[in-house]
């Protein structure tokens, strides 16, 4: 019974937020703390862990909350809940999108959206870049990270078909050895 309840809470969180994981956070925190499921400190830990672990933030947070509350089945219920609206809504939209994608009006419209998405990727790059280069605010530049990012970019520009996975792995290992906090 409480599993169904948990599923429904996360279904609501997944359905009523646009803009991804970080946009879900306020609603998620409110639902979990106001119902007395988690303390504020626990939700702070949830955010920290969800950002440190790989994968979508919302799924990480849902799995964390479910696991903490009711174990593996709780994790499954919360994760299923947060993902279900996304899957259902997107499948409907995807069918519609596929049916109309080839129309000239649609492709003409999308040609204006593509530069906007490029802007979003650029913003994401600069946002993550700023966060990692200035971890303690505008004052302190993290020089080793800047050098690592520059080396990474140089490698990507020179080595043909360098795998993103390989680069992330190598930089992660490098960080574990040389960039310890």
């Amino acid at each position: 019974m409480e599993l169904l309840w948990l599923f429904l809470i996360f279904l609501k969180i997944g359905f009523f937020t646009i803009g991804g994981g970080m946009a879900m956070l306020p609603l998620m925190q409110e639902e979990l703390t106001a119902r007395g499921l988690m303390t504020l400190t626990e939700t702070v830990d949830m955010v920290a862990i969800s950002q440190m672990t790989p994968g979508p933030f919302a799924v990480n947070a849902a799995t964390f909350a479910g696991m903490k509350l009711y174990g593996v089945w709780g994790a499954a219920a919360a994760t299923l809940g947060v993902v279900t609206p996304s899957v259902v809504v997107t499948l409907i939209v995807a069918r519609f999108f596929a049916a109309h994608y080839k129309r000239p009006a649609v492709s003409d419209t999308m040609s204006a959206v593509r530069p906007v998405v490029m802007g979003l990727i650029l913003a994401a790059a600069l946002g993550i870049g700023y966060e990692s280069l200035f971890p303690s605010g505008a004052g302190g530049l993290d020089l080793p990270v800047l050098l690592l990012a520059c080396v990474g970019l140089a490698l990507l520009l020179t080595v043909k078909k360098l795998s993103p996975i390989l680069l992330i792995t190598v930089c992660g290992v490098f960080g574990a050895v040389f960039l310890r906090g």
Binding site: I128, P135, V173, G175, G181
Partner: peptide, 16 residues
């Protein structure tokens, strides 16, 4: 934390 610092540098480079 070291792993994450390294990974963030890689993600920045990859997105750019």
């Amino acid at each position: 934390l070291g792993v994450l610092r390294g990974i963030r540098a890689a993600v920045t480079a990859l997105l750019l």
